[in-house]
Amino acid sequence: MDILLQLTFAGIGMGSIYALVALGLVLIYRATSVVNFAQGDFAMFAAFLMVLAHLHLGLPYWASFLVALAGMVAFGLIFNYGVYYPLRNRSYLPVLISTLGASIVIQNSVLAAYGPHPANLPGALSFQGFQVGSVFLDGQYLVIIAATAALVLLQHLFFEKTIVGKQLQATSQDKEMASLLGVPVKIMIAITFIYSAVLGGVAGVLVGPIIYVSIGMGGAIALKAFAATIIGGFGDIKGAIIGGVVLGIIETFGAAFISVPYKDAFAFIVLFAFLMVRPQGIFGEKIAEKA
């Protein structure tokens, strides 16, 4: 029983990481109908900014955090205008490829600038975790779970209660209509990219202490995050969160009871099954009949 609890905690922990990255993915998808294949690298980039500010420049943790987020604002803006904007009127395919190219650029630029060494980023809080009975609750996982929950809540409030949030929603639902209603669509999309970059950045800074900060840290997570968004229903925020957690639990239990080396396969087999049986995901609308 303890083992099951411990595994569940680990699954939820990893799942929250997937969910956090998936959140940024969904936002961009809703605003632009583009799947951003560089979303994982957003996390990586921010984590390295944090390492730079905190470990190398010696800034205090929270100051470094702000520096990293400020960096991500600029990063999101550059990404919007460099990778998405010139291709905005084309089909999804060139944009998709463009984000793949961006992923290569980001990873290798960091490699060239920082070097290949992974870094050990300390957590936001100094405590290591709790021992509850024979179950150990890792402190940083708890922070991630809490942060994910807080961000979802914040996001909900932002979208539902603020004007900018409502304009963003309008943009993501129907660009032309939003434009007719006087919503500055271009700016809204830029904001979406900035916001996604910041979200990805938060994910990177939070995940860093668990899996260390390395060039490849984002790639593996991003792929699972994609899977999570599809399982949850593409474009659905609560779906992405639940999809992420479901995925984390499935792969942890699959690894524990079936096979460790095939751990990644479980996530993908579940995804495959979903695409076959229920491609719209848990919360998605049924894919509309074409006319």
Partner: peptide
């Protein structure tokens, strides 16, 4: 004897198996 694929981010299942 327990194998894993490189770049695993979580080792909980392995560590628990070792413990057991």
């Amino acid at each position: 004897v327990q194998g894993f694929t490189s770049n695993s981010q979580d080792f909980t299942p392995i560590v628990l198996a070792v413990k057991q």
